[in-house]
Amino acid sequence: MNEDLNLLGLIDEEEILLDEAALSLALLDHPGTDLAPYHDLLDTMATRLESVGGAETPSERADALAAVLAGEFGFVGDVESYDDPANADLISVLDRRRGLPVSLAIVWVSMARRLGWSADVLDVPGHVLVVLGAEVAPVIVDPFAQGVRVGAERLAELVEASAGKRRAVTHVAAMPNRAVLVRLLQNQASRAEQAGKGRRALELYVRMTTMAPAFPHLWWERARLELVDHAFGAARGSLGAMLELTRDPELRRHVTEALGRLPPE
Rank of each mutant, 00 (worst) to 15 (best):
Ser92Ala: 15
Ala174Leu: 04
Met242Cys: 06
Lys197Ala: 13
Leu129Arg: 01
His254Asp: 15
Val136Ser: 14
Ala201Val: 08
Pro249Lys: 10
Asp142Tyr: 05
Met208Val: 06
Arg149Asn: 11
Ala189Cys: 15
Thr57Asp: 05
Ala21Arg: 04
Leu28Met: 12
Ala152Leu: 08
Leu49Ser: 05
Asp43His: 12
Glu50Gly: 15
Ser238Asn: 05
Leu41Arg: 15
Arg252Thr: 11
Ala201Lys: 05
Gly53Val: 07
Glu250Ser: 13
Val107Cys: 00
Val130Thr: 04
Gly133Glu: 01
Phe232Asn: 13
Glu135Tyr: 10
Asp29Arg: 14
Met45Trp: 13
Thr47Ala: 10
Ser51Tyr: 05
Glu13Val: 06
Glu80Asn: 09
Ala152Ser: 13
Leu65Tyr: 01
Glu250Val: 12
Ala214Pro: 07
Glu250Gln: 12
Leu25Thr: 03
Val159Gly: 01
Leu28Ser: 06
Leu10Pro: 00
Leu245Trp: 03
Gly71Tyr: 03
Leu10Asp: 03
Asp40Ala: 14
Tyr38Leu: 14
Pro264Met: 09
Asp12His: 11
Gln146Val: 08
Thr33Gly: 10
Pro249Thr: 08
Val102Glu: 04
Ser238Lys: 08
Asp4Trp: 09
Glu135Ala: 10
His230Phe: 12
Leu185His: 03
Gly147Glu: 02
Glu265Phe: 08
Glu244Ile: 03
His39Asn: 11
Leu158Asn: 00
Arg222Asp: 13
Ser190Arg: 15
Gly53Glu: 14
Asn177Val: 06
